[in-house]
């Protein structure tokens, strides 16, 4: 009985991990899993390509990368939100995978420094998470 319960627990965990690894969500996640929605501001360097984007200096910005300009965007009160489908710029932010642009985003602080980037296939629904990160920029 005890060993059966332990085996079932191990099998359930293995099945759960296998299901996740085979899921469509996993295929859209960061190839470097460590950086998938890490929620840690691990970057601090001048943001790239700002001259090509409609981003006003002096205010935090959310730079979204996706395949289609009509991709859903989060609504944020404390940051300007802009979208790019440029594969060259996405590559510079390491937000291109196997030729696919995003979906993901970079966070740029009011001083024009990039502080964070991540793939995120559900970014439009993750306003709370992104809002906390934007608050952490200041």
């Amino acid at each position: 009985m005890r060993w059966t319960a332990l085996a079932l627990t191990g099998a359930a965990a293995t099945a759960g991990v296998a299901l996740y690894l085979g899921s469509p969500a996993h295929k859209l996640h960061d190839p470097n899993h460590a950086l998938q929605q890490l929620d840690l501001l691990y970057l601090d360097e001048p943001a790239l390509g700002l001259d090509r984007l409609p981003i006003q200096p002096g205010r935090p910005a959310l730079l979204v990368f996706c395949e289609d300009v009509r991709c859903p965007l989060p609504q944020l009160d404390d940051a300007q939100v802009t979208c790019s489908t440029d594969p060259e710029l996405a590559a510079r932010y390491a937000l291109i995978d196997d030729g696919r642009v995003g979906p993901g985003y970079a966070l740029i602080d009011a001083q024009g420094q990039v502080r964070y980037r991540t793939f995120d296939p559900g970014l439009a629904e993750h306003e709370t998470e992104i809002g906390i990160l934007v608050d952490g920029l200041s």
Partner: peptide, 18 residues
Amino acid sequence: PNSLTDLHIDRGFGLCPV
């Protein structure tokens, strides 16, 4: 990593079994 350049470095680990 602490720079965008770092993100382009492949350190050779098998990060994902897929």
